[in-house]
Design a protein around this nucleic acid. Structure first.
Lengths: 317, 317
DNA sequence: CTGTTAGCGCATTCAA
DNA sequence: TTGAATGCGCTAACAG
């Protein structure tokens, strides 16, 4: 009842008639405690609702059991899926997570990293983006996993951007589409932009298809307006660099009553397949990537894993 | 260069030839330090890249400057918007946030609360849901703000569910719709379910409209299939309890080529107005709610505010 | 097996 | 204005 939760290990010791260290041992499940004493102490702990202070433990043991996660935007559907996979895995290992948004601004990342260092966090999972310089990250070397981008000397988890495009191109052309267009994003975005576009061009080469592409940004609007540019009477299919873009393109198709054009997209959003079931959608494996990152980080922190770059396989259907 | 960041206030003291307490004073911007000493110490701090340990500060001062945020799902668009408003406001006040998912499971909330207590967090923002019992929360009384639900004795921030429906009904009927249907969610959901449905019924009464409603869940699918039940040849408009439901209903309308039926919805998702610009959409004020909650919590923690229940006004357009 | 002792890094008295 | 001393709650040596 004594609400304040201000009890300390010392109180518990007094209340159960033992020394502080014995209580500590019970708390940490260390072996050297007699069954009797252990039970008595545990009883007191339970009935007092005692909870040891993390800050004190942290100060003593070095580890705060906290992980910092820096996403670009909390409402990015892809990062969201990854984070949802990360959280429970870390939690399971006793880590809580501090979440921060970078808004794609390098200065904000730097500031967040400062704060996280001050908090003495055990590790960091950072969603990378174009423009983020390596120097800022390097001091975290063995305590950081970067998502979506690779940096020399840092662990990372990336998607198979080219593979996704290839999968789409292969399936589409195998289904008889001879003229396949592409709606993407500007190439200053390294992965979603350049990599996917390049893969499209390469595939066109391989399949002897004349490329028909336009690059914009990640918005529906962009998808909508670029669709108009890309789609000609001959177009049989269009690949979109993201589901959001695809949503925009689909609106255009629908508005123009162009029912013959197939859409292939990357992202696998439930909404897209609900609204337009015919869409071909590649799952980049966001959740898997999150899980992989969490595991990799925990491995690093436990000294069981080495720094390495992972690529998550994508899949169609 | 001595990477480890293992420097302590003591090292800085030695390096700048002063006592530890003086360094502490400089760190906390306490007045009683001569300009000279202050500058010297600050120089050393800067060139050593010294960062004081949060855990130690926390243990000393009681406050960890950490807020726990428990959302139901990270990918809930509405909660997402709120959280995005909360984070920077708390951050601005020196608080970092630990984020957790309840998945609408009361036991998980209880567990999270335990962990947060152990971390000695300063406060909590909790997104409530039906089934969450007050007893679990009451011990946080003056350190918690509950979103979406009201609990006696706890601060809360709620939406104006009834107001939103009224706004929609008024506008729709004023635009000439005489027969307005409703697609909602089951009433065991107190707010999105019962409150909105009840408001619909009341408005029907007032406007002398014969209610035509169906209740399901929050999915597109539900919206789609219930649309079929609700919409009759006479239907001139349909109100949906959420944007997700509206998306489902719109798909039905489109598929049936029912272009005469207007849709009113609650949520104000950008996607909805992009895909179906004609939709009437009420903004419940998710971001405002988040901001209000953050402010309220900070106020509580500073002892500047009292426990109270807030309702965020909604708006159309 | 268990109690005692000694700090972890810092903020805060209290003297000087 | 400053430094020395004290203790926050806890774990890890070290004795018994």
């Amino acid at each position: 009842m004594s609400s304040s939760s201000r009890l300390t290990i010392k109180d518990i010791a007094r209340l159960s008639g033992v020394g502080k260290s014995t209580v500590s041992r019970v708390l940490n499940n260390e072996g050297k405690v007699s069954q009797q004493t252990r039970e008595r102490v545990e009883a007191v702990i339970r009935e007092q609702g005692f909870i040891p202070s993390k800050s004190a433990q942290a100060m003593r043991g070095q580890s705060d059991k906290i992980i910092g996660i820096i996403v670009s935007r909390l409402d990015s559907p892809s990062e969201n899926q990854s984070v949802r996979a990360i959280l429970p895995l870390l939690y399971e290992q006793g880590y809580d997570s501090i979440l921060m948004e970078s808004l794609l601004r390098p200065e904000l990342v730097a500031e967040h990293l400062r704060v996280l260092r001050q908090r003495n966090v055990d590790g960091i999972i950072l969603f990378g983006f174009t423009g983020l310089r390596r120097e800022v990250l390097s001091e975290w070397q063995e305590k950081m996993v970067v998502m979506v981008r690779e940096y020399p000397g840092l662990s990372s988890v990336c998607y198979d951007d080219a593979g996704a495009v290839n999968l789409l191109m292969a399936r589409l052309s195998q289904q008889g589409s001879g003229q396949i267009g592409y709606i993407g994003v500007a190439q200053n975005d390294e992965t979603t932009g350049r990599l996917r576009y390049q893969a499209y061009l390469d595939a066109c080469q391989r399949l002897a298809i004349a490329p028909q592409a336009a690059l914009g940004d990640l918005s529906y609007q962009s998808g909508f307006s670029l669709a108009e540019q890309v789609i000609t009477p001959e177009t049989q299919a269009v690949i979109c660099a993201s589901d959001t873009i695809a949503l925009g393109a689909m609106k255009y198709l629908q508005q123009q009553a162009l029912s013959g054009v197939k859409i292939g997209s990357i992202g696998h959003t439930p909404l897209l397949s609900f609204l337009f079931p015919a869409t071909l959608s590649v799952d980049l494996g966001y959740a898997n990537a999150g899980a992989a990152a969490a595991r990799q980080l925990v491995g690093l922190l436990n000294g069981e894993a080495n720094i390495r770059q992972l690529t998550i396989p994508c899949k169609l259907d």
